[in-house]
Design a protein around this nucleic acid. Structure first.
Length: 287
DNA sequence: TCTAACCTGATC
DNA sequence: GATCAGGTTAGA
């Protein structure tokens, strides 16, 4: 479900909670709430929210006393702010009760998501966090070229790998590759010329635009106030298999690459790098 | 480096 | 009934 723009949108939606006081942390499905060594849910009782944070697709609340409540939404996780008396929707697994009769609720039908109570050191030390590559906004073309260059897999697979760049997922990999004019199955160490620059710029552009639109709501994703994002309406290839490419009119193709549904335009994203034309023929009629 | 697995629900 | 889904990872 949520990739970087969605997770960052949720984080921003939680910012107004800074200054609020937590009264209880409750878990209704064993295993969804995980406690760092020595941590207890009771430690949050009376603690104030002092900030929010995000790294890749992991977001967290910071509390007085230094504790952090980290949330990974995975595929169907949803973090919403509700009245404590509001009916609990199905699959609500963790609730953080706040002052003023409100609750921050984590629901997740598939239960892939996790909520973790940790201190800062424990959070930094999570194997998942330690493996993460740079945030996209810290990424420049030489860094991207270097990180792709020593891998032997496809662009699609490499960009989904959070140790290469942190925060991309299936939607934004497809969208970024399309904007860069690169086929998802290109060997990721075969980029040359201005391709790393184009790809880097495409990643920055698509993530920036998606964030401005509040993310992509295809099925489950909602902001903390349960409103939808709007970027799905601006997708150029993702979810558009069989439809016409806005750029050239060719039919968008859907395939499976790296085990994931993958969308690309066969004309805008040719499978092989075009070989430099030896002779320019003015009357071939193609253009 | 790739696949299967983790889960439920929506859709065909 | 079978298939697919926006993520991550253990194990091959």
């Amino acid at each position: 479900m949520p990739e970087l723009p969605e997770v960052e949108t949720v984080r921003r939606g939680l910012e107004p909670l800074v200054g609020r006081r937590a009264t209880a942390l409750r878990c209704d499905f064993p295993g969804v709430l995980q406690l760092g060594e020595g941590r207890s849910p009771r430690e949050l009782e009376g603690a104030h929210i002092t900030g929010t944070g995000r790294r890749a697709k992991l977001l967290w609340l910071e509390f007085s006393g230094g504790l952090r409540l980290a949330v990974h939404l995975r595929m169907t996780g949803e973090l919403t702010l509700e009245g404590a008396g509001a009916p609990r929707r199905p699959h609500t697994h963790v609730s953080l009760a706040l002052d003023r009769g409100q609750e921050l609720r984590f629901r997740d039908p598939r239960r892939f998501g996790r909520v973790q109570l940790l201190d800062a050191v424990q959070l930094e030390g999570l194997p998942f966090v330690r493996r993460l590559g740079p945030e996209p906004d810290e990424l420049d073309p030489p860094t991207l070229a270097a990180r792709l260059g020593h891998r032997s897999t496809t662009l699609k697979s490499a960009l989904l790998d959070q140790s290469v760049v942190a925060g991309l997922g299936n939607i934004y990999v497809d969208e970024a590759l399309h904007r860069a004019g690169l086929h998802p199955e290109l060997w990721c160490n075969s980029l040359r010329g201005d391709e790393p620059t184009r790809l880097c710029a495409s990643i920055h552009a698509v993530l920036g635009e998606a964030l401005a639109a509040g993310g992509s709501s295809i099925r489950d994703y909602r902001r903390p106030d349960r409103s939808k994002g709007a970027f799905q309406r601006q997708h150029l290839v993702f979810g558009r298999g069989g439809e016409a490419c806005h750029g050239c009119g060719e039919i968008i193709r859907r395939s499976v690459v790296a085990g994931r549904g993958t969308h690309h335009c066969p004309r805008c994203q040719p499978r092989r790098q075009r070989v430099r034309r030896r002779v320019r023929r003015p009357s071939t009629g193609r253009g």
